[in-house]
Structures are given as structure tokens and as C-alpha cells.
Design a protein around this nucleic acid. Sequence first.
RNA 1: GGGCCCGUAGCUCAGCCUGGUAGAGCGGCGGGCUUUUAACCCGUAGGUCCCGGGUUCGAAUCCCGGCGGGCCCGCCA
Length: 532
Amino acid sequence: MHWADQLASRVAEELRARGKDVYIFNGGLSVSGLQHIGRLRGEIILGEIVRRILEKQGLRIRQYITLYTQDAWKGKKPQREAFPKGEGDRYVGWPLIRVPDPHGCHNNWVDHYWEDFGPYIEKFTDGRIEVITTTEMYRGPLKQVVKEIMSKKEEVRRIINKYRARKPYPEGWIPFEPICAKCGRIDTTRSTRIVDGEHVEYVCDNCGHRGVASIEEGKLNWRLEWAGVWKALNVDFEPFGKDHAAPGGSRDSCVELSREILGYEPPAGQPYEWVAIRTRSGVSDMSSSGFSGITPREWLQVAHAEILRFLYLSTPVMRKVVINPLDIPQYYSRYYRAMRLHHKMEGQGGEEAVEEARSYELAQLTDEVRPVPEIPYLHAALLVQVLPRENRVEEAVRRLKRSGHLPENPEPHQLRWAETLLEKAARWVEKYAPPNLKITVLDRVTSEIAESLTMRDRLRGLADALERVEPWTEEGIKQAMIQYTQGYTPQERRQFYREFYEVFLGRDSGPRAAPLLAVLDKRMVVERLRNL
RNA sequence: GGGCCCGUAGCUCAGCCUGGUAGAGCGGCGGGCUUUUAACCCGUAGGUCCCGGGUUCGAAUCCCGGCGGGCCCGCCA
């Protein structure tokens, strides 16, 4: 059985025990910097998949993604480097939502880095995910929870101190951290007295300021905040990264505090592994505050959302996914294979095939599962490179019909797939493709190349042979070229092809000659050879 | 100190949950094309399933103990 189905049935069991009409799913993100596609995995797509499986079984579910916008900006080196020179230093410890946009185009740090992520959530899911920030929650549903926690502060302290035996909090400790009115930090303040239900006195260890703050202007201690969010939103299921999963970690302490202090049964959970990226320098986990990884916007430039979903679905949740942009053509091959398995276009292959097919099915953005044309990614990459830039997508589509990759009268979704694939492949060639996959058809033969030719007559003669090819298909061209070069010695043939590639691509090798010529215009090919 | 993941064909990995004569993709090699080759198609993989014990008629698969690699938490963020 697919891991997603197993997870869904386990979650379903736990949900039924909670007995509600509408269940709440949640995920959490701290917008500390680059919002990479790894964050889609556990906090968004995982929940969405489980939700959709369970909705099909008749459960009613609302899904949120909570942004931890009150968290302190830690001022890690890559974060600081987003600002000009030393400007970032003064924001260290500020709530993320108050840190200015280093590029000046948005209201603040959060808005800026959310730009390449937030609007794309709906392109990677069914779109039914609501965004909420802790900043708003402290002014709304979390406020009551904060009051409740503060009213039981000694009991809270007793529990939390079990997790920090070496450095217990002292008597009177208040688990609320206000924003310092003077220096702006949220990570250096200590509440010293509860004034009334809604205000605390505090002292800032950074600047020494003493003041009174509203409980809307601060945050709960990290060991409590998550539990507070559960209760405030009535969360019933929430996955969490492996960093929260360690025994004695935040999940453990929040489970206990939720039950003991808040009287709230903690949600069902599921730990998940992170996503890494392979670059020239090696493999490393994608990191928000480290600014490592690619954003959803960048992913969509070079690949469909379904491909990423498929990668996540075909990897067990507790296993690391390593994304290598150079492997995107292969990801498509795997996706197409799974598609064939799902649509029974390929013979059964046992349990593994069944799960691949299921991964494909769950990778879809809607419940409609329609096969797309199996256009190899590298083929698309070749096409867009050899066609003239203007109208190249339209022309490429014509070629795809001719080569049988697309039906003569494609359905709208088939056509859309082809067009978007061509655009993405073109972008991939620019951004990621290794040099040997990059080709350009020369506008004209430079004099330098023309002068270097030693087989000019033979190349000219090829023009006549090719002119007779009708229709202009790969097969016909192939036959003509084999015939034309029949009497050549291996060395001559080698040289002939070298010069052939020089004439068209300005380099001594390239894609196989026949497919290359087939996608080029016949008249152009004949004329270029004839005029050498 | 605690926990997680991984260790199976050159590479990436599936198979382990529900034990029953070792799999896929890619690369490579061969062929389609006496030929350049990187599209596409077809064919081709014999690897101590990390090591050692145990359970079993039978273990890559379950249990215990190691070794190696990666990562998280360590009660400050």
C-alpha cells in the first residue's frame, strides 16, 4: 500500500476518535529567508494529499498554513548579506514581520520572501489552503490561549523545566516574550510581572529597557507556542520536520503542555525528512535562512508542479529527497512511466508498479486524471534550440505533431502540456543544461568556418541528395544520408560529419544528423549546403 | 548523551511493513543506421543484497549486536 494511503488511514482513525464535523489540518513555516520547494513537501503538499484522500472518504477538512511571523530574525550571515553593508545588524532579534525588506519593494522581510512562494501554493496543490500568520493570531484566537497559559505559569514552568534540567527557569518565570519598545528585539526580553490579563511588565537584557507590553506584541516561549497554535486553531493533524521529532524536542513538550495545561488533545502528527539540492559543489539541505535551494517560482520555470509532487510522493516521508536540476529530464521519464502504469498502458509489474501508479495519481492537481502526451524532455529541449526564436512554440508544436509526439488534433490539455513543456525546457537549457546539450543553429556560415572546410564539394553535393527527399522526414533524410556517404572510408565519413556540424551548429558534433535536419527547414538546409 | 535515515548491479535507488529461487531507471556496451551521435526505439546488468550472530524448512526481507555514511535534537535560539 502506498505510504500516503497508510498515513491517511492512520490519520483517519485518529480523527474519528476526535469526532468533529470539520477537521483542521495545519502546517507551519518561519519566513526566515528563501522560501524553497522543500517547504512545500511536509507543511503543504503532505497535508493536502492526506486531506484529499480523506475528503474522498467523506470527511470535511480545512487546511491552514501558519506563518511564524513573530519569530526573531536571527541575523545569520546569509540573512545579513541580504542588506547593504552593515545595515542588517540593527535588525537582529526583531520579529520577522518588522524587519524591513532589504530590497525595498515590499512592506517587510516576510512579504518580500513570501513573494516567490505564497502565490504559488495554489499551483502546486488544489488551492484549498488558507494562510494565517502568528502576528494576526496573537491579536485574535491566540490571545485567549496566552492568557490561559499565563494564568497557569507555575504549572507550565514545572513541565518545561523537566525538559531543561540543567538550566531550569526560576520561580515566577512568565512564558511570554514581548517586543522591546526601545530596541525592537523579541529575543532578549523577559516578562517580570503580569499587570493584568492583557499586559506584562518586562525588562530587555539587550538594552536594559523596562516597560509594559500588550500580549498582542510579543510571542509565547517556543516550547509553548506550537501548542498554543493547536488550541487556537483547533488543529487535528499537523506534520512536522525531523528537527521537531527528536525525543524531548518541541513536539514532545508541546504534546505534554497541550494536554496538561491547555486541556487540548494534541493533533495527529507525522514527522518528515527534508529536501536537499545537488549543485556543482555537492548535496546540501535546502535552507531558508541559509538561502539555499530553489523557490516554487523557479521550479515552475523549468518543470511542471506534478513532477515535484510525484517526486515527493514516490519517496517515503522519512527519506530525504535530493533534487538535482540536471536530472529534470529523468524525472519526466519516471513520471511518464508511472503514467503509463496508471493508465494500464503498460503491463502490470507487481506492488512497486502499483505504488508508482498511485504516486502519479496523487501527483495530479485535480481529481481528473488525464494522460498527457509523452514528449521526452530532452526532445523538447532540442526542438526549442533549433527552431527560430519567433513563434518557436507554435512551430515546435507542428513538429511534434509531425513526429507523432502529439496527435494531429490534440485536446486542449494535451496542447497545453506540450506548450508549457517546450517553454520550460527552453528555460532549463538556459539555466541548467550542461554545455554539451546546448546548441544553436547558426544564422549563417561564418567566413571562418567556410574557409576551414576541406570537404566543401561533398557538402554541396549533399544539397542535391537532400533536395530529392520528399517528404522531409527523419527517415527519408536518414536514408538519403546513408546512401550519400556510402563509399566513404570511416575517416572520411568522420570528417564529413564534423564539417556538417560546423556548417549548421558551428561545432564539430551535435545531435544525430537526421533528427536535427528533420526539425530544420528543408529549403534553408539545401540552400546553406549549396552556397558553401 | 538521545533519536532518525541510509548502506542491494558503475551511478541513483525499488524490493524489507505482509520471509519463499535477486529488480528498475540512468550510464556503459551492442544493435536499429558496415557511418558522427548526445534525440528516439530494441537488446544487454550476474551484484559477498555492509559485517557477525539469532529465529525459521527457508532471510536482502524478522530479532539482537557491530561497522560505515548522512542528518536532527542536546533542554540558549
